[in-house]
Design a protein around this nucleic acid. Structure first.
Lengths: 237, 237
DNA sequence: GAGTGGTCTAGACCACTGA
DNA sequence: CAGTGGTCTAGACCACTCT
C-alpha cells in the first residue's frame, strides 16, 4: 500500500460493497450521479468512471432519464462470475488450496514458447482447489524459476499464487488472457476430482501479464462442470 | 441508422479498423492522446473514452510516460475472442449458419422461468454454425413467440439472430450473460458435429437482455473444442 | 418541467518514462 | 527536459423519462 487510492476507486469500492452487502438490492436503484458527487465532494468524472467500471463488469445497468440499477443475479447461483483479475483473487480467498507438489528446474519447449525465452527453467505448482471439501478444479501453474524460487510453500498456502507474487515479490499483474475449452478426465484426474473416468471437464488456461506485456505466469486448470460454472458478462462495445 | 455516432465511437472504430488492417502492428505504438485530439479536432474526453474501451477489451495496453500499444496476438490463433456483443455479431458474419428447424408454439416451465413469464409460448431455432464446411457448434435458440413470429427464415439465413432482431424488429440488445460449462456429445449431437460419441463439448449458454433487463433471447450452444476455443481478456477492475 | 444519464469542452496537476 | 498517460475540476448541451 504505497500509493493512495484514486477517488473513482473509492467510489467503486463503496458501491460494490454496498451491493454485495445487500444494501442496494438486485433490481434496486443506486444513488444518482448528482447524489454521488455531493456525497464524495467531487466532480462528475470520477463518479462516472466508477459507474462505468461497474457497468462493464455487469454489476449495474443504467438508463438515461431513469437511473442506475443493480443487475439481477449478480452471483446468486452456483456460477463464478469472473470479469476482472480482482474476481480471480477473490475466488482464491473464498476457496481452499490443497498443494500436491512444488518443484523447480523444469524445462520444456512449450514453456519456452509461452514465456518467450530460450532454454528456460521453470517452477511448477500443482494442487486442487476445494470448496467445502469438494474439489472444484485441479490447478497446474508454471512460473519462471527466477521468480518461483523466491516463493516458499507457506507463501501460497493461504492465498492465490498471483497474490503471493504481488505481495511477496511486488510484481503487479495487469492483464490475463484466458482460453476456455472442454476435455475428458483421464484416470489420475478423475481420481483427484472425484468424478467418473472419461467425465467432461472444463479446461481453463490462463496467461498472466505484467505492465510490459511480459508473461509472468501460466496456469492450466481442469474444472468439474457440475460444481464450477464459468460466467461472464458481455456488453455493447 | 437513425442516430449519429458519437465522436468516441468514431475514434474507437477508426483505431480498431487500423489495427485489424495491420496499419498498427501488434506491439506497435498507437497515436498519443494529444495526436488524436488534434486529428479529430476534439478534446481529451472522447479520445480517452475510445482508448478505455479498447483497453478493456484487451485490444491495446497503455503505459504512463511511454505510450499506447497494440496488444500482441489479438485473434491470431484459432481461438475466438469474445469480449463484447459486437464480437458475437462479427463471429456470425464470419461463419455460415445451416438451419435445421424453426418452430413456434413451444412451451416449457424452464423457458417460463428464463423469460420471467407465465405459461408463455416460444419460438425455437436450431441449426449448426460452420466455418469452411466444418461444424463449429450446434445452436439452440429460444425467443418469445410474439417476437419469433415476426421473423422469417430468410431473415436469419445470412445473419445472426441477434442482428435480425435489431434490424428487422428494432430491438436493441444491451447485455449478454454467458454460462460456460463442459458436457459430453450424445449420439445425435455427435452425428451433427461429426465427432465420436461421448466426446467432450464446450457448452455455452447465453441470455440476451434489452435496455430494461428484459430477457429477449436464450441461446444454448454445444461447441467442438478442437475447432472452437473461447478466449477472453481480464484486466484490473 | 425537473431530473436522469450520455456526451463533450477546456482547462489543470501529477507520476512516470526516455532522451 | 518535454512528452506520456492517469486523475480531476467545473462547467455545458442533449435526449430521454417520469409525473
Amino acid at each position: 500500500m504505497d500509493t493512495i487510492k484514486p477517488i473513482h476507486m473509492i467510489i467503486r469500492d463503496y458501491l460494490l460493497s454496498n451491493i454485495q452487502s445487500g444494501e442496494y438490492q438486485p433490481g434496486g436503484r443506486l444513488p444518482t450521479e448528482n447524489e454521488l458527487t455531493k456525497k464524495f465532494q467531487t466532480s462528475r468524472s470520477p463518479v462516472r468512471q466508477a459507474l462505468d467500471t461497474l457497468r462493464i463488469q455487469g454489476v449495474i445497468y443504467r438508463h438515461p432519464g431513469r437511473g442506475t440499477f443493480v443487475s439481477p443475479n449478480p452471483g446468486g447461483s452456483d456460477a463464478w462470475t469472473l470479469t476482472s483479475i480482482r474476481d480471480i483473487i477473490e475466488q482464491g480467498f473464498q476457496t481452499h488450496f490443497q498443494l500436491h507438489d512444488f518443484t523447480s528446474g523444469r524445462t520444456s519447449e512449450e514453456l519456452d514458447r509461452i514465456f518467450r525465452v530460450k532454454k528456460g527453467k521453470f517452477t511448477r505448482i500443482r494442487g486442487v482447489r476445494l470448496l467445502k471439501d469438494q474439489p472444484l478444479y485441479f490447478l497446474n501453474v508454471f512460473l519462471p524459476q527466477k521468480i518461483g524460487r523466491k516463493l516458499r510453500v507457506i507463501d501460497i498456502a493461504d492465498c492465490p499464487v498471483i497474490v503471493a507474487l504481488e505481495k511477496k515479490l511486488n510484481i503487479r499483474l495487469k492483464k490475463c488472457i484466458q482460453n476456455i475449452s472442454a476435455t475428458l478426465a483421464d484416470p489420475p484426474l478423475a481420481r483427484i476430482l472425484k468424478v467418473p473416468n472419461q467425465s467432461p471437464l472444463l479446461s481453463i488456461e490462463r496467461f498472466y501479464f505484467t505492465d510490459n506485456e511480459e508473461t509472468i505466469e501460466w496456469a492450466s486448470s481442469f474444472c468439474r462442470p457440475d460444481l464450477y460454472k464459468y460466467r461472464s458478462v458481455l456488453s455493447r462495445g
